[in-house]
Design a protein around this nucleic acid. Sequence first.
DNA 1: TCATCCATGATACATTACGTAACAAATGCG
DNA 2: CGCATTTGTTACGTAATGTATCATGGATGA
Lengths: 125, 125
Amino acid sequence: MKYGNRIARLRAEKELTQGELAEKVSISRASLSHYENDRREPDLDVLAKLADFFGVTLDFLMGRTNEPGRSLDPEVKDFVESLELADESIIQKFQLTIDGRELTSDEARRFIAFIRAERQMRGEA
Amino acid sequence: MKYGNRIARLRAEKELTQGELAEKVSISRASLSHYENDRREPDLDVLAKLADFFGVTLDFLMGRTNEPGRSLDPEVKDFVESLELADESIIQKFQLTIDGRELTSDEARRFIAFIRAERQMRGEA
DNA sequence: TCATCCATGATACATTACGTAACAAATGCG
DNA sequence: CGCATTTGTTACGTAATGTATCATGGATGA
């Protein structure tokens, strides 16, 4: 595997030194140097910190995909569209309000998809 | 970190024994058992093999997102989590059911944060 | 040129974590 | 129950990592 260069590149984009980044993710500068040169592999925990810090996915950080994985909308859209959506009548029944403002149909759709997905993930499908 | 159960669950979905999966990703059965019980962490390339085998992202496999295929942008995630959540009384007003099952407080909380984040991003805050 | 500073690369050794065989426990079935 | 299958746990040798420390490279300026 050879993802170290991605770390180096991301770090360069933010114009940080190894020392600075190392401190932000609580590791020694030497360790970071090893990661960037593919001499050592970071702990999963450290890897997650790096991904969080740079705002990218683990898959991107490890070079498994070229998409950093930003933007909420396309993701949510695809996600929702992949599910069976409740029809309008069902949505109407909810009459939801959040912060005093009624949910739009679209928001309600997402809501339903959201909950279904979570339940499914928990094996309660 | 606690992602082992996801491996176990994915394995169960495919109805494989530890031995069978272990062989497919070229590790010992004992190692897999350790992973599933969060006693050991797999090497990154073993992790990648597992993700490939199950067709999920690393982020999902490690429990960083609940969506198997795509990953949630960490920045958005943090943002949502940083929002003040509605208190219990607000949640009670909803009395929602989806697919005949009532929402849990936790489900409602998360969705409220979700909608707020979206509205704010659209400048409707 | 070379002296100095700063960032990075490389090494060595102590420490930690992992891989796996072997044993124990649990589960299922006749 | 007895046996087979699957999974959990332990122990220990091996391999990988963390980091202090030293070496190298690059830039700057006198």
